[in-house]
Design a protein around this nucleic acid. Structure first.
Lengths: 214, 214
DNA sequence: CAACGGTGAGTAATTACTCACTCACTTATT
DNA sequence: AATAAGTGAGTGAGTAATTACTCACCGTTG
């Protein structure tokens, strides 16, 4: 074997992976309707005809992308560990950091939004794998901590969504709408976590004073 | 004037308004690239040629929509009033209610997302008129209240975005991703406002006890 | 009649997708 | 070892349909 010289032909898998990568960034940048199969072929460095050898239709290629881009687990394990220690601040910080992390490319977020807006059939699955897991996980934790008396009694799902909402919205502003981040990554995360856990209203730090009752 | 009988021909303004309405809902549903001028004409009940009598290009029609859909002021006045009274809860409730209000159609939100994702030149203006005003307004209020000692010292812009983020994210989930609202409108708003103002962590209700300092 | 609202029938370009075909490489047969 | 046959990657040149947009031409009305 060892085609050391100059392998002219890729394997089918390599080609498919290359096509998916090229198409994913194009679909993320310009949407499904805004991307042509000719562009995809050119970006992948092959002829347009070959695209259809690997994927029967343009939509099938799109579906393959959505079905492939599913990876979150490493975060949930780290969260689980902090959750066992009841380290509330760390649980929320981990989630927020993961979502706001500086190097995260906007491809997935854009793909998610495009697929939802354009009503692709795999959109819901894509959403479920990328976002719903967070809500459910976080909601369960909040519910537990509420039962333990550490958190107030709130609808855990609403609370989870509220927190994720802060963070996702931040990414949205930054990555989709181009709003500049005027604070550092860490400052932003800390602020959000702090706001969510202890609220905006100033708490009395000298509780020996009477607290107004009306 | 008064063509009372059976006006076969509309005025130019009426036609333009009709075209904008028809096109707006189509663009919101399927995006710019996903909508054809033929569809727009059919939805407006005219020939395709007439579309181009009123708007030189499809993109100009899109631009006219974004430029026209700008209306928020009534809310900001109500907020201003509550802000003067330092009624924090009401300020936030007003904003949240306005955004989550049940009858709000998703057209504007979808148009906003599509225009940002597809990179339309008027997207930023659209965003500015529909969202940035909220941040700025709210940030100013938060800054004032922080200076007065009522709110903690936080980056006011981040805090404003955090709150708007909760609410906008809620709409996103509901209107774009089809996630069902399992709580009523009012319950949801109350929960969000309460979470944001007082935080998730249970506060001691009997402050006569000493509070741990480490 | 003249101006304007309105249209049918185009057109050139682009689109997703197809097909007949070549080329590189592997395997079986002599 | 040489050759023949087969396999699958890869393509140039299409095609039918759709696209945004145009234009010569109506018909109503002031």
């Amino acid at each position: 074997m060892t085609p050391r010289s100059k392998q002219k032909r890729s394997t089918s898998q390599e080609r498919q992976a290359g096509l998916i990568t090229a198409a994913a960034s194009l679909f993320a940048a310009k949407g499904f309707n805004g991307t042509t199969t000719k562009e995809i072929a050119r970006a992948a460095g092959v002829s347009e005809a070959l695209v259809f050898k690997h994927f029967p239709t343009k939509r099938a290629l799109y579906g393959a992308i959505l079905a492939e881009k599913v990876t979150v687990n490493e975060l949930l394990e780290a969260v689980e560990e902090s959750a066992k220690k009841r380290d509330d601040r760390r649980v929320f910080t981990l989630i927020a950091s993961f979502r706001i992390r500086p190097g995260a490319d906007s491809t997935l977020l854009r793909l998610l939004l495009f697929s939802a807006l354009e009503g692709h059939e795999l959109s819901e699955m894509f959403f479920g794998k990328h976002h719903r897991v967070f809500y459910d996980h976080l909601a369960t934790y909040i519910e537990t901590r509420s039962a333990e008396g550490a958190f107030r009694m709130v609808d855990p799902l609403l609370a989870a969504r509220a927190f994720i909402g802060m963070v996702v919205h931040h990414r949205l502003l930054h990555e989709i709408f181009g709003v500049p981040m005027h604070r550092s990554h860490d400052e932003t995360v800390t602020t959000y976590v702090d706001l969510f856990l202890t609220g905006l209203v100033q708490q009395p730090t000298a509780p020996a004073q009477r607290r107004g009752s009306g």
